[in-house]
């Protein structure tokens, strides 16, 4: 294919070169070991690792998962080994691969966010993704991401400690996503990622009890794609920084849609659980789309929606 030779897939994302715009979303790819059995992670533009906290977190009791029409709810609750063990045990493994490492970090307080950003800045990662949008933890998480003044407070504080590009991951559980995006960028965010999961709930009609242990959980999967596309579009209208778009992507055409809405790169999440090779297929389908439409540079798609 002659077109493939001249095709540029690389994306400059806050000074970090992603070899292509396909990444995997935090919480769906662990630290790479599991899906590394099915494909070489070097195929990816980047890997956002499982959300990290200052200390090990047990996570929520089961059940943590409920299926929904075209998607799923989860209330895993940030189960992770803690940032120190990530740095010593997981970074060396991830560095075997030729892909950007995006460290997703959370805290319970502004001070904890600052500490996490400071510590991860000195580790061998490429980008920091500050998670102010987890719906499944009592403190921190979404509590910081749904009020503009809280976003401003936690992001401006953490930004002072960031020695790597700081991506702020936004919650869709807000009235005005553009307002939140402006607050994050105003406070120093170098980029934004969105959307985290949408807060949802399912009830077992036999027992009349919630299906999830936590009562509520985060919705992901194809069901959320149009919400994610809409929010990426609104954020692109509001701010200039790079956007990592995610939420319901499972095909190359979904990825193109997210790019056209205004994303510079995208992440695959829950679709991995259906098809472990999904990111590889999305990349192949994206290339096919570019070739078919005689597009030489994937970057030209970004924000290309015609109104």
């Amino acid at each position: 294919m002659k077109d493939a030779v001249r095709m540029n897939l690389a994306v400059e994302f806050c000074g970090v070169t992603l070899k292509n715009p396909i990444t995997v979303a935090s919480g769906t790819f662990g630290f790479g070991h599991e899906y590394g059995q099915f494909f070489n992670p070097s195929a990816l533009g980047g890997i956002s690792v499982k959300g990290l906290t200052p200390y090990e977190r047990l996570g929520n009791p089961p059940p943590r998962i409920a299926e929904t029409p075209a998607g799923m709810l989860n209330c895993v609750g940030l189960q992770n080994p803690g940032i120190d063990r990530f740095i010593t045990e997981q970074i060396p493994y991830l560095r075997q691969f030729d892909t950007a490492i995006i460290a997703n970090v959370s805290g319970n307080t502004v001070e904890e966010y600052c500490g996490m950003v400071e510590k991860i800045s000195d580790a061998d990662v490429d980008l920091i993704e500050m998670n102010i949008s987890c719906p499944n933890v009592r403190c921190g998480g979404m509590a910081f991401g749904t009020q503009p003044h809280m976003v401003d407070e936690v992001v401006s504080a953490a930004k002072k400690y960031a020695k790597k590009p700081l991506i702020v991951k936004l919650s869709p559980n807000v009235a005005d996503i553009a307002e939140i995006a402006r607050a994050a960028v105003g406070a120093g965010a170098d980029a934004l990622s969105l959307i985290n999961t949408l807060l949802g709930m399912r009830i077992d009609v036999e027992t009349r009890r919630p299906v999830l242990s936590n009562g509520m959980g985060g919705l992901s999967g194809p069901a959320v794609l149009p919400v994610a596309v809409r929010m990426v579009y609104q954020v692109r209208q509001a701010v200039q920084v790079p956007i990592l778009g995610m939420g319901g992507i499972s095909t190359g055409r979904d990825a193109v849609e997210m790019l056209l809405a205004g994303a510079n790169a995208v992440a695959i999440g829950a679709a991995l659980f259906r098809d472990p090779l999904c990111p590889v297929k999305v990349l192949a389908e994206l290339k096919h789309y570019l070739a078919e439409h005689h597009i030489e540079d994937v970057n030209t798609l970004s924000g290309g929606v015609v109104l």
Binding site: I65, M72, V76, P276
Partner: peptide, 17 residues
């Protein structure tokens, strides 16, 4: 047995105490 997501240990959905 537990409600399962990915089936391979990535999503951490099928927790058991």
């Amino acid at each position: 047995e537990e409600r399962m997501g990915c089936g391979i240990g990535a999503c951490l959905g099928c927790a058991c105490a």
